[in-house]
Design a protein around this nucleic acid. Structure first.
Lengths: 332, 332
DNA sequence: CCATTTAATGCTCATTAGGAGTATAAGGAG
DNA sequence: CTCCTTATACTCCTAATGAGCATTAAATGG
């Protein structure tokens, strides 16, 4: 033993930084120099970081000049077989066979009026560009057609009746079909299913899965080193969390109209909401209070401007916006 | 650079293994040889582990001869200031100044009829021995008296009116009081509050917190290296999860009575449930089906034996036992 | 100034989920 | 046969919530 270190493990800190601008949920991405895939801000955990979260904040600030507000840990990824899981680490480690690399992913929320932070190659990009099958605000997205076709092909080419049946069940569960409603929180499950079906280009470096010719035209822009999986995790977490914690307001400006709030919720959940019921919900929960001003630019009757009532967090155990999508697809 | 490794980070895999036996929720613990504190099964992630979960399973199996079924990732802990966060790692690393150590904690569930696995110094211990303020099945536990007194003292000795007010608000939020109902899921929040208040012996190695003489008699048995925090995290997660996923059945034997199921749910949530409503819930959700047999040892009318209907997971998006505690404390 | 359009806002209705309690059934112990 | 115990079946009531109708307040074009 050299006495320096025993473990061959490097730990990366990766940030899924979310903001919603103009009905479009966005992630902060770093575009590669040489035509590679965009990736999330990240950096290795070092001895100087006293907490994981502190390390993450520092890396993000360094790479994007953005100072984060709300941050929560998402998940720790560590499959050594996963696409690119080791490649980036290998470089940093100086070419030695860095056997192992794990990534601790964080979710961060940025207010809509927060700094644009387009510095240092970082840019906001709509997350549905990466996962177009997750946006059902306008009814079933066009990409679902392709997705279903590809998945059905995958299911049909399974080895044996049982395998085929099991695959079809999983598809039905993840994406919803006749009878079975789609669960908007199962973002990761859907991504993983597509991954297993060989429809995610990021998987093509994976031993176990063969590049599928048909996946070439799969909708959804790939990202670097398994980062799309982290994005899917973040979306799922966020969609669940807004229902029982007032995190939605971490994405809103100081004052906002109820419709703006609703549009933000819709952007995240990817589903249309019933306007009147949404208002009733927000009011009943006493999540907001009027600022006294009104927004004139509505196009119709002016809307009262509201602000978040921070006190609710001290009043009730789990305030949140537990809305559910309208049965009939589309905005209301 | 030596060419061997660049990071000074070691990654541990730690398991909170839960089982419920006879109304008592238990964790699998490893008792120390030399009168130290009990700790959870754990081991370092090595290059031979292809996934974190696989590494965890291997360590648990090696240390306790127990083969795990249901496993999910809980949280990754990495505060370098946290009690014992580095000490254990330092030993393994051979005395070198291992600057950094993080722990990926997992939650595992074991069926009540699973192997006792009392081999290799491992033993099941009731989790409320470590966190007695979490068991409200028989109404407010006696330990709450001490806890409230200590917390109130901590709040009262805060520096400045504002600090004192904020501390009292946090206490009220975490533990619930007049008006504010206690949220049984906020286990970690309660633990962290006690930790900050200097009432958790594990914290006494922490720079920022001074050992408080009054904490000497705090109820609740300490554990090694921050493992009690992981236990708190596990309990909170589990209490939340049984409400929307049928994980409760991962703790039950093949066949069981509805009362046994209810007792298990109560053991986890630490609250009494309304028997008739619990049955209605379980029936309406179609979570179980009768085996045809009956249990005679009930002490009264024999109870139908039931089994879990695995199919529900394929039928509805989020089946679970979303019960809520009876208002009036105590069993019904 | 008035009709029309566009949103905001207010309110009703029906259904469901869930908290609480009453009543009945089916065993064993004495 | 009576009492005790637990299982099981219902009833009642209220709060939450999905859906839709109605009204209000601005802007715009005639």
């Amino acid at each position: 033993m050299t006495g320096v270190v025993s473990s061959n493990v490097t730990v990366d800190l990766t940030a899924v930084i979310v903001s919603v601008r103009d009905r479009m949920p966005c992630v902060l991405e770093i575009d590669p120099e040489a035509g590679g895939r965009p990736h999330l801000p990240w950096g290795p955990l070092g001895p100087e970081h006293h907490t994981l979260e502190a390390g993450l904040r520092e890396w993000v600030e360094r790479q994007t000049r953005l100072s984060l507000g709300y941050v929560e840990q998402l998940y720790t990824f560590g499959d050594s077989s996963r696409a690119g899981a080791t490649s980036a680490a290998a470089e940093r480690v100086g070419g030695a066979r860095a056997a192992r690399n794990i990534s601790v992913a964080y979710l961060a929320l940025v207010h809509a009026d927060g700094a644009l932070a387009s510095v240092s190659d970082a840019a906001w990009r709509g997350w549905y560009e990466h996962l177009p099958w997750e946006d059902w605000r306008g009814g079933e997205p066009k990409s679902m057609r392709t997705v279903r076709d590809r998945l059905e092909y995958w299911a049909a080419t399974g080895d044996g009746d049982e395998v085929r049946a099991r695959r079809r069940t999983r598809i039905r569960l993840a994406f919803g079909e006749n009878g079975m409603p789609r669960d908007e929180e199962r973002v990761l499950e859907r991504y993983e299913l597509l991954y297993e079906a060989g429809l995610i280009p990021e998987a093509w470096y994976d031993d176990a899965l063969h590049p599928s010719a048909q996946a070439a035209s799969m909708p959804g822009r790939p990202m670097g080193t398994d980062h799309r999986r982290m994005l899917a995790t973040a979306i799922g977490r966020l969609r669940g969390k807004i229902k029982y914690r007032p995190v939605l307001f971490e994405l809103m400006p100081q004052s906002f109209t109820l419709l703006a709030l609703q549009r933000t919720a819709e952007a995240l959940t990817g589903a249309g909401l019933h306007k009147q019921n949404f208002r009733r919900l927000v009011y009943n929960q006493q999540l907001v209070e009027p600022t006294g001003d009104v927004e004139q630019e509505t196009g119709g009757r002016p809307a009262k401007l509201m602000r978040f009532r921070r006190e609710v967090e001290l009043e009730r155990p789990s305030p949140g916006v537990r809305m559910s999508a309208t049965r009939r697809a589309g905005l209301v």
